[in-house]
Design a binder for these strands. Sequence first.
DNA 1: ACGGATACATACGGTAGCGTATGGAGACGG
DNA 2: CCGTCTCCATACGCTACCGTATGTATCCGT
Lengths: 202, 202
Amino acid sequence: MEEKPKKPRIQLDRKSWISAATEVIAEEGISGLRIEVLAKRLKVTKGSFYWHFSDRHALLLAVLEQWKEGRIRDIIKQTHARPGEEQSQIFHVIEVYSASRNRRGMMIELAVRDWARRDQQAADVVAQVDSVRLRCARELFLACGVPMDEASSRCMLLYAYVFGTSLMVFDDFDGNIERFKQDIAELIARSPSCSQPSLQSA
Amino acid sequence: MEEKPKKPRIQLDRKSWISAATEVIAEEGISGLRIEVLAKRLKVTKGSFYWHFSDRHALLLAVLEQWKEGRIRDIIKQTHARPGEEQSQIFHVIEVYSASRNRRGMMIELAVRDWARRDQQAADVVAQVDSVRLRCARELFLACGVPMDEASSRCMLLYAYVFGTSLMVFDDFDGNIERFKQDIAELIARSPSCSQPSLQSA
DNA sequence: ACGGATACATACGGTAGCGTATGGAGACGG
DNA sequence: CCGTCTCCATACGCTACCGTATGTATCCGT
């Protein structure tokens, strides 16, 4: 017992607070984020928080900023396709954004979007993220040979669908939900003017 | 001045509280519903509230119940089509659920669904509403001659799309959003196996 | 007109959370 | 060894709510 664990003096930085806050937001939503509760999670008191941040709002803005950057980085990664694989990359995007595959990410997404409905700053960030996502996804459709207008509407439908799906409860509807979701992905991703036939058609 | 307006003795009933609460929820979300604030809106004190309701939760459940009944009544109305007009009725459903056409209704919808993400009772109600909506919309597709599986996936896509759209911000994307939305409606509503040609195709 | 029921108002205790003020321990350079 | 800077703990005041207890005005039947 030579090394007595005399209070490991856990050092927290801004980043720790932001990621912990993001976690709480995923679980409880924006309005569920309480400084004192968050401090308890991190085994410190709010004295620590108010040293790193001016107030609660500053933390929220930091969360928002970090979310924006992460989402933009991610979408650029997810929509990067080797030439000739754009079609399957579209299916990949749909898959990645399905609530079942990435529950935590979708919870944050929905929390931020709910926030954005009543906060202009959040709305601005969501607008920026949506803009990048739509343009990136449109590039994939364009690369498949889909004409501009159709590519635009397809990528709008794609994102509206993935977010909308995560808002709904299909349980009571039918047992074949997963199969229907595949059909929907086909409908969204495949275009009559698409040069590449679907790789996933049965 | 024979009739002095000496405090008109505004009588409130449960229904008034429920509809006022629904209004606040549309604006502020579930977590923004405060009894004392709500009472101020109604020009009474919370003494009145606690006469009509046991507590805040009882009001929320009443709101939920009323929302459920209203939504089910509405969807049955909206999906009733005269024979031969099922196709245009599908377009009508999409139109009615567009955020721009019914902003208030969509705000409530999103608030309830956000609530349902963390509350089982709300989730159950949403599940019931979704179930009825999906079945009603599916009937329309079936009546158009669309086979069962495809009708199922189409109506799932339809609702996921309308709710997802109201979560997104398309402003920075393109100036032709409304046209794209029409194209999307066409894509959702028209099926290769549909017996009725689109009435809205340019 | 009078007693009860109805539909509130008023007042109170209690909690949760925000932000501030101030104290104090540990690292660190000189 | 001492002062300073960092990072956090403690203690405090304040507000917004929730729910309860109790008072009170209005209505209503008999």
